[in-house]
Amino acid sequence: MRVFPVYAPKLIVKHARIFLTGVIWVKDLGRLEFEKGRFLLPRKSLPKVKQAILELNELIEAQN
């Protein structure tokens, strides 16, 4: 598990694309899981977490 002390979308996306499957922890967002290079949306999450995951997945799609 990698810990990101700040929310840096480009760096987080780079990590997810390299490792494809895993878990990261982002300060103020908490634990985020990714599989096959995409972030998974938890069943229950705060609106800011949901927005961050959608933003990260959009960045991943834009890079493909």
Rank of each mutant, 00 (worst) to 15 (best):
V13T: 08
I12L: 04
N64H: 09
V23C: 13
V49M: 13
A62C: 12
H15V: 07
P42L: 09
R17S: 11
K36F: 08
V26S: 01
V49W: 02
V26Y: 01
K48E: 06
N64Q: 09
R2D: 15
K50C: 09
I53R: 00
P47N: 11
E58Q: 12
M1L: 06
F19A: 14
P42G: 07
E58L: 14
I60K: 02
V3C: 15
G22P: 02
F39Y: 04
K50S: 07
A52Y: 02
F34T: 00
L59M: 12
E61A: 13
L20M: 11
I18Y: 15
G22W: 01
L54W: 09
M1C: 15
A16Y: 02
L41S: 07
Q51R: 12
H15T: 04
F19Q: 12
V23I: 12
F4N: 00
L32R: 00
I12Q: 01
V23A: 04
K10W: 11
L56D: 00
T21G: 09
R17Y: 08
I24Y: 02
F19S: 10
K14C: 14
K10V: 13
V23W: 06
S45P: 08
N57Y: 02
K10S: 12
V6F: 14
Q51F: 13
L46R: 15
V6C: 15
F4R: 00
A62Y: 10
Q51I: 08
L29F: 07
V13W: 02
N64A: 10
T21H: 13
I12T: 02
N64E: 11
L40G: 04
G22F: 03
L20N: 07
F4M: 03
M1E: 15
I24T: 01
P42R: 11
P9F: 02
R31I: 05
K27A: 14
N64F: 04
A62D: 10
F4Y: 03
D28S: 13
L46P: 15
V6D: 04
V13S: 10
L29R: 02
V49Y: 05
L32F: 14
K44D: 08
K10R: 09
K48Y: 05
V26L: 04
L59E: 10
K48L: 07
E35F: 10
E61C: 10
E35V: 12
E61N: 15
I53V: 09
W25P: 00
K14L: 12
L11P: 07
I53L: 06
M1N: 15
F4H: 02
E35S: 12
L46T: 10
F4C: 06
A16M: 04
E35C: 13
I18W: 12
P9M: 03
L41R: 11
R31G: 02
L46Y: 13
L59K: 05
